[in-house]
Simulated scan of single mutants.
Amino acid sequence: MKTILICAALLSAALAAPAQAIDMEVEVSGLTQSEGRVMVGVFSDAGTWLKKGSGGASVEANQQKDGRVLIKLQDLPEGSVGLSVFHDVNGNGKLDSNAMGSPKEPYGFSNNAAGVFGPPKFEKAQFEVKAGARVSVQLN
């Protein structure tokens, strides 16, 4: 009986433990300039999609080779996420847009999702996070 109680306690503790954070890589292609930074935003649900990220990373664009750069994402939550990527050419920390609201800097999304008259829905960009995986994003 004591063994059963110990096993039950261990199982209960394991189930109550927080989910393990996951690391993965994003390969961004389509870079045509080496100025600025390539920025990746991580979004964990449709309610915060493109508004409030749950993480992210960036690298200097001059680290590119043949128009590609590799960015490591760390401590991602388990489950589904969507990525927003852009090349901040002028280094001001934001995606610049023209008077009509269209982006003036190269951008892309996970799954190479595209929207109609605006950004794609979260559901088009979301994917399951897998440790050690590499996701590819093509900049427009």
Rank of each mutant, 00 (worst) to 15 (best):
R68P: 01
Q126L: 06
F86P: 11
M100V: 11
G93Y: 07
M100E: 04
F109C: 05
A133E: 15
M24Q: 09
V81L: 15
N111P: 04
N140S: 12
V89I: 11
G91C: 07
G67W: 05
N98G: 10
K2S: 09
Q138D: 12
L95Y: 12
Q74M: 14
A125I: 04
L5V: 14
C7W: 11
I71C: 05
L73D: 02
F86Q: 10
V40H: 01
P77Q: 09
D96N: 15
Q138H: 12
D88V: 03
P77W: 07
S12I: 02
D45F: 02
E35F: 01
E78G: 14
D88K: 01
L15V: 12
G79D: 05
S102F: 15
G41F: 09
L11M: 13
K51I: 06
G36V: 02
F43C: 05
G30S: 03
R37G: 02
L76A: 15
M39D: 04
K121Q: 13
A17C: 12
V40D: 00
G36H: 01
S110F: 09
Q64V: 03
A57D: 00
S80Y: 12
Q138A: 05
E105W: 06
A8D: 06
Q74K: 15
G79K: 01
S102D: 14
L50D: 02
L50W: 06
G79A: 01
T32I: 08
P77K: 10
C7E: 11
L5C: 13
K104M: 10
V85P: 00
G101N: 10
A125Q: 07
L76D: 07
G108M: 05
Q138C: 00
A9C: 09
S97L: 06
A14W: 11
G108E: 03
A61W: 00
S44D: 12
V42T: 01
W49F: 12
A21K: 13
Q126C: 02
Q74W: 00
K130C: 13
N112Q: 06
I4F: 09
R68I: 07
L11H: 00
G115N: 01
V129C: 04
E35H: 03
E60L: 14
A46F: 03
G115H: 08
S12C: 07
G56E: 04
I6Y: 09
A125G: 05
E128R: 13
S110G: 00
G101V: 04
R68A: 13
L70Y: 02
S97A: 15
L95G: 14
E60T: 11
T3K: 14
G41C: 05
S44C: 08
G47T: 14
N111R: 10
F117D: 10
E60V: 03
P120V: 01
A46H: 07
S136I: 14
V135Q: 11
S58W: 02
I22K: 07
F109I: 05
D96H: 11
P103D: 04
I71W: 08
S54F: 10
G55D: 00
N62H: 03
S80K: 13
T32A: 09
A113E: 00
A13H: 01
Q126A: 12
D66C: 07
S110P: 01
S58D: 08
S80C: 06
A8C: 13
K130T: 14
P77S: 09
A13V: 06
N111H: 06
G67F: 03
G36N: 03
F122D: 10
A46W: 01
E123R: 03
G118S: 11
Q63H: 07
T3Y: 14
G93W: 04
N92Q: 00
N140R: 12
Q126E: 15
A9G: 13
